[in-house]
Design a protein around this nucleic acid. Structure first.
Lengths: 261, 261
DNA sequence: CGTCAGCTTGACCGCGCTCAAGGCCAGTGG
DNA sequence: CCACTGGCCTTGAGCGCGGTCAAGCTGACG
């Protein structure tokens, strides 16, 4: 039951019961992958979209000297390997951080489905855009904030995204990341991640023990990170009835007929 | 004559003379914009695509405290405001750095054109992907490298992109950025940008005077930045004749008929 | 009970920030 | 023609954030 994935897609475009059933069928075959395995390898051409149903993965770039930079997290309900459907530049790998239950959907199957279920493709597409927005946000976060702010920002992003799929409640979530993972994500040494977390704990902004993250006052954490979650909310592609006359993004072209139907 | 724009699009998809003429007509009406004006404002909904034909602009995020983070450069031939065509999350502004000659293309006009000139839309689309790839690269650069590496990386990116539109020769280009601009782009104070540039100069890696950047040994600069320009080369969407049997990214769907025709 | 991964803490040091002052044009107006 | 002005670049001094190295701690697991 890939319900995290369905829930995620449903945020972008209202899915009919038939749409949902179709996604369910597409992502029916799942398999568990061990931690620290690659789901997608830099340079390798992939013909499948990989949907993470449980567990966490990350997109990363690896250097020859052993260091790596995590450039994004892949959480339950997230997909990677979109190059199988849309043309894309793929110059990074995606690896599991925990054990991951994943479904591999052949690009062809997804494309065939897209023809008959435009809303699915549209949702999938909008999800890609969200990833781009997150990437921009990371750039800003890295350039502007100090360790405290960066980590706070990342935690805000994570909580917000997990809430969207129902994996975080009002005051916390499971955070299956090591401090090393966090460091590789925000560009800070493991030691300093530790000290920064201590600092956030001492300020009463978070509690984090044994992979359980508690955020007693989300507004306070948001303030530290200058976090504005608007970029994580789904873009609304206006439907015809509330679209100003004469302005029809994407409509009027074949592309439009797919994406904003 | 928006030939930088045409040249740029032509890298992604072979444009017919008719395609080129069409783009020329679309971007015929141009106007000069002063430095430090906004072409696109965070939050404002734009119905036009803005193509920069001469001069430089940048995408940036502004903070309340006055600091800003540049998240990407817009150089001659580059477009911004794609939200007028594709749905997109726009949580940043685009402002001019120099005087800029820009063409504003109504989204509707571009969409209408897309219907009859699929290669134009496809090129435009692939250009968007390149921007995403650059964004990922910035994330990695920020997280992994120190000031020297970041600036070297940025300079490599700039030279490579300018070469693609014929605005950089073998050993240099015009670089109309202040050290403050550079600092806001790589997340480093103006003072330290200055010192880092001195350092690069002293190492013989660059010469930079009065907006003239000279890179005597590009390979050496690339090595400092660990720069691999592959991500800036256009993705090739395979044409039918060299596509492996049975694998047809994007073909078979209406979307495919637009993007990979 | 030993082992191993991950977390924690301390000491030291350097990259990069801040504040502050001065230098170098290019443009402007007397 | 020269003085003045305002961007922008340059340089110095001092300091703090965050990196590195090294050691010890904790808990899960065989």
């Amino acid at each position: 039951m890939p319900h995290h994935f369905i829930r995620k897609l449903g945020r972008y475009a209202p899915l009919s019961p038939d749409d949902e059933e179709t996604v369910r069928r597409l992502a029916h075959e799942t398999a568990w992958v061990d931690p620290n395995r690659d789901l997608l390898i830099d340079g390798a051409e992939s013909r499948e979209v990989c949907v993470v149903l449980d567990g966490w993965a990350c997109a990363y770039k690896q250097l020859e000297d052993g260091r790596r930079q995590i450039i994004g997290f892949v959480m339950p309900g997230d997909a990677c390997g979109a190059a199988a459907v849309f043309p894309d530049v793929v110059n990074y790998s995606v690896g599991t951080l925990t054990a991951v239950r994943a479904a591999r959907i052949p690009g062809r199957a997804l494309l065939a489905t897209a023809e008959t279920h435009p809303r699915i493709l549209r949702a999938f597409w909008l999800d890609r855009l969200a990833v781009s927005a997150i990437q921009r946000e990371w750039t800003a976060s890295f350039g502007l904030y100090t360790a405290r702010g960066r980590i706070a920002h990342l935690l805000c992003e994570i909580v917000t995204r997990l809430r969207a799929v129902g994996l975080a409640d009002e005051d916390g979530c499971l955070l299956p990341l090591t401090q090393e993972d966090l460091g590789e994500a925000v560009g800070i040494s493991t030691v300093h991640v530790n000290r920064t977390l201590q600092d956030l704990r001492a300020s009463g902004l978070i509690a984090l023990k044994r992979q359980q993250l508690v955020v007693p006052d989300f507004a306070a954490l948001r303030a530290v990170a200058q976090f504005d979650g608007a970029y994580l909310r789904p873009v609304r592609v206006r439907d015809d009835h509330d679209r100003p006359a004469g302005i029809e993004p994407l409509t009027g072209s074949v592309l439009g007929s797919v994406l904003s139907s």
